Computed example of a mutant assay.
Amino acid sequence: MPLRLVSSNRFRAGLAGVICPVSQAGLCVIDTSGDFATVLRRTQGAALAAYKHASCNRLDLTRVIAGVVADRGPQFDLDVSLNDRRLGGSLQDVPRTERTTFAWTATQDAPSSALLLNVDGSDEAVAITMYLDSHFLAPAGGEALLWTMESTAVAAAATAAAIEPAVAAESAAAMTPGAAMTPGAVAVPATEPAGNSAVSTVTAAS
């Protein structure tokens, strides 16, 4: 599964104090075969490599993509990105809620990307903001994606707690854990948003 991970690039020499956007999205390819724990372990290494090698000349990248599209066809698309803004500190405080909430918050006619997920939060709560082009993914599909992300995380946490109690106890002694995610009622408009672009936010206790 190809995915682009947004890297700050601030770890690079000379960029730490630069006052301008220097973030870029690095290509991360994940082998999704096997169970969730196996995929998670693979993802860690793939993600670190993507963050490390995200820096590139954008003009060169555009030329490479154009060449691949010419060779393989217009279905080639790398416009699916994840921006985990919790790395190195949260940019946005996310208050803990008793139940997960979901809402479409805005629409516009000029989508900025096919699909982008921004992740904010801490050990207490996580907020995922989705930007999607409804020609790429229908709003109902975007909502289903967010709920699936939550249910997968909840199931994995429950399984880990059941089969690795010793590890869980050791981790609990080393850090202050949050409560388990609790799926909750969905708060959505009666109709799906119109236009080419939709923005949704789901906030989950973690």
Rank of each mutant, 00 (worst) to 15 (best):
D93R: 13
G195C: 06
D109N: 07
P95V: 10
N118M: 13
A172P: 00
L3M: 14
E170W: 02
D93L: 10
T152A: 15
R4N: 14
P21Y: 10
R96H: 12
T201A: 06
S55R: 10
S90V: 04
V18M: 13
G88V: 05
A160K: 00
S206C: 09
V119R: 08
T176D: 10
R72D: 02
S8Q: 09
A25W: 00
A114T: 08
L15M: 07
A49G: 07
P74N: 08
A190V: 14
A125G: 00
F136N: 08
N9K: 07
C20N: 00
A169M: 09
L82K: 05
A70C: 01
A157L: 12
L15H: 04
L137R: 15
E164C: 14
T129G: 02
Q108A: 12
D123S: 08
T191M: 11
A180M: 12
G142A: 07
M175R: 11
D79Y: 03
R96F: 06
A54E: 02
A160F: 03
E150F: 05
V202W: 06
V188M: 14
L27M: 10
Y131Q: 11
S200M: 15
D93K: 12
D84W: 03
H135N: 13
S8N: 12
P189D: 06
E150Q: 15
R12H: 10
A16W: 11
E164A: 15
P189M: 09
P183W: 07
N83L: 03
A13N: 09
M1L: 09
A169T: 09
A161N: 05
L91Q: 14
N57L: 10
D93Q: 14
L117C: 06
A158Q: 15
Q24L: 04
L15S: 04
L115D: 01
V119W: 03
Y131P: 00
E124N: 04
